[in-house]
């Protein structure tokens, strides 16, 4: 299971990085979103998968999955939402103000 998820993380990182390296805003934003999915899964995998029940002490069972990565990811999900929202709005504003849809155009405009 761990290996499988790690392979998935690898593929997600590849896609995300490729998107990040493009010039179109929407691609870049999608890249960051996918990258955060990948990293969440990576963190979760680091704690070991399916090593026990859900980390709820009311559940039956003596072993629990590692709760620390889950706590980290929970905060990370919310933060990455805020980041995505911010980037989206940034792109939206740039597009409305300048009509540029990629970073090179913005750069050119600010140089003029």
């Amino acid at each position: 299971m761990e290996t499988l998820i790690t392979l998935l993380v690898g593929v997600l990182v590849m896609v995300a990085v490729y998107l990040l390296l493009s010039r179109n805003f929407v691609r870049i934003i999608l890249g960051t979103a996918i990258l955060s999915h990948a990293i969440h899964l990576l963190i979760l995998t680091m704690g070991g998968l399916k090593k026990g029940g859900a980390p709820l002490l009311t559940e039956e069972g003596s072993t629990y999955s590692d709760a620390l990565p889950q706590a980290l990811i929970l905060t990370a999900i919310v933060i990455s939402f805020a980041v995505t929202a911010f980037l989206l709005v940034l792109a939206y504003r740039i597009y409305r103000e300048t009509g540029a849809d990629n970073l090179d155009d913005v750069r050119r405009e600010s140089d003029d």
């Binding site: 709820l56 002490l57 009311t58 929970l74 905060t75 999900i77």
Partner: peptide
């Protein structure tokens, strides 16, 4: 407190 949920998911 004891089950899934909490401030983040509740708030969301």
């Amino acid at each position: 407190h004891n089950d899934p949920g909490g401030g983040f998911s509740g708030g969301l």
